[in-house]
Amino acid sequence: MPLIRNGQPLADPWTMVADDAPLPAGAAIVSLARWLRDRDALLGRNQPIGIVLPPDQAVDELGPDLDRLGVVALEFRSFRDGRAYSQARLLRERYGYTGEIRATGQVLRDQLLFMERCGIDSFVLPNDSAVTAWSEAIREISVWYQPAADRRTWVVAARHGASALDGCAPAG
């Protein structure tokens, strides 16, 4: 499935590794459970490591290890399940996480903009046509009434000082 990051399609440098599979060479994404179990061994490989954070796990679980993680993959098990939006904002805004936050699962065109605003910067999309749709979807709305994890200026700030809508352009 195609991956885009910061608006650009790219070959996925990461391999998703099942809990019972051996670790491949190079960058690997493992489950939170495997990370919690084999943390030291995984760090000892000196290879990039990422984890999948399930929607029912608190972001605090990752706590002090966050800066060692190259990617945190969030799960949209259904497009209706909005927990990952909060997880993404907490990762960016509370914990200052600067690595990749990846949306996996049911990632729909019409939700990309919300995901992106919450700080998700890479998206596993269902097919190639979704990649074109991404660049359209991300430009559909340019006015935002609330600050979030992206750099867009919110309307209240724009009304009272910030240089008009400068920051309201999409980051991607």
Binding site: Y85, Q111, Q146
Partner: peptide
């Protein structure tokens, strides 16, 4: 009303 409009985090609540 304004704050809640197209809120990116709270558009897919339970």
């Amino acid at each position: 009303r304004q704050w809640s409009t197209l809120h990116p985090e709270f558009s897919f609540l339970p």
